[in-house]
Amino acid sequence: MSEATSLRTKRLVMRPWREADRRGFRMLNADPEVMRYFPRPLSAERSDSIMEAWQDHIDRHGWGFWAVEQASDGAFVGAVGIANATFPAPFTPAVEIGWRLSRAYWHKGYAQEAASEAMRYGFDELQVDEIVAFTLPTNLPSRRVMERLGMRHDPADDFEHPSVEAGHPMRHHVLYRLARVDWRATAGRR
């Protein structure tokens, strides 16, 4: 078990999960608009299972997909972080970055702000060589965040996500990558 890390940005706190986050995370995962790039909205039980798995990752490693709250008032925003991706794919094992925010917090720059800090932590503190991100080809909002983070897409890296059933229209995913050396070369320009 590692000591859990919390991160801060100007407007956000990224921290381990609390029981009080359960309700907000359930609401976020049940929102069809938030979940439109996933096969389906999640049940309360599945949402709880993911929250517990993400906290378990934090307990084991000290970092992971953190709960995110506004620094000003402690309001639950969503989840952002980095975690080990170990499912079978040509690019795994890898460290992935991801975000899922409640709709009330879209279009405020929160995803990029928190993801930038998670990426900094991964490259500077953990010294990972590369961070990846993936989504559906049609998820243009997340793809724009990936591009603003400096990540690059090569269609040769795209893959069929093994946790989505064969033949499902959401099985095909695009992969973005950023190497630590490339991040360091551009970090000052962000």
Rank of each mutant, 00 (worst) to 15 (best):
T186H: 14
F91L: 10
A85C: 05
L178W: 04
A67K: 03
H107T: 06
P141C: 11
A75K: 11
W17G: 14
Q112S: 04
D154E: 11
A44W: 07
A83G: 15
S43K: 08
R15W: 03
A85D: 10
R36M: 11
H107W: 05
V164I: 06
L101Y: 00
R189W: 04
N29L: 12
F91N: 08
T9S: 14
M1E: 15
R144Q: 10
F159P: 13
K10D: 14
S6W: 14
A79R: 08
Q70E: 14
D154P: 05
G64N: 04
T92L: 07
R60Y: 04
D154L: 13
M146Y: 03
Y110I: 00
L175A: 09
D56E: 07
D157Y: 05
F159A: 13
N84Q: 15
G24D: 07
A133N: 01
W17C: 15
H107V: 08
V164S: 02
A118R: 00
I131Q: 05
R22V: 00
V95K: 15
H61G: 04
V68N: 06
A89V: 05
H61M: 05
R60P: 06
A30W: 04
A71H: 04
E113V: 01
F123W: 02
A111R: 00
G167W: 01
G122M: 06
S2F: 07
G78T: 06
I82D: 12
G81R: 06
P169L: 01
A67R: 02
R18V: 06
T5A: 13
R11F: 04
L101I: 01
V164R: 03
R177T: 13
R103N: 05
G24V: 00
R143G: 12
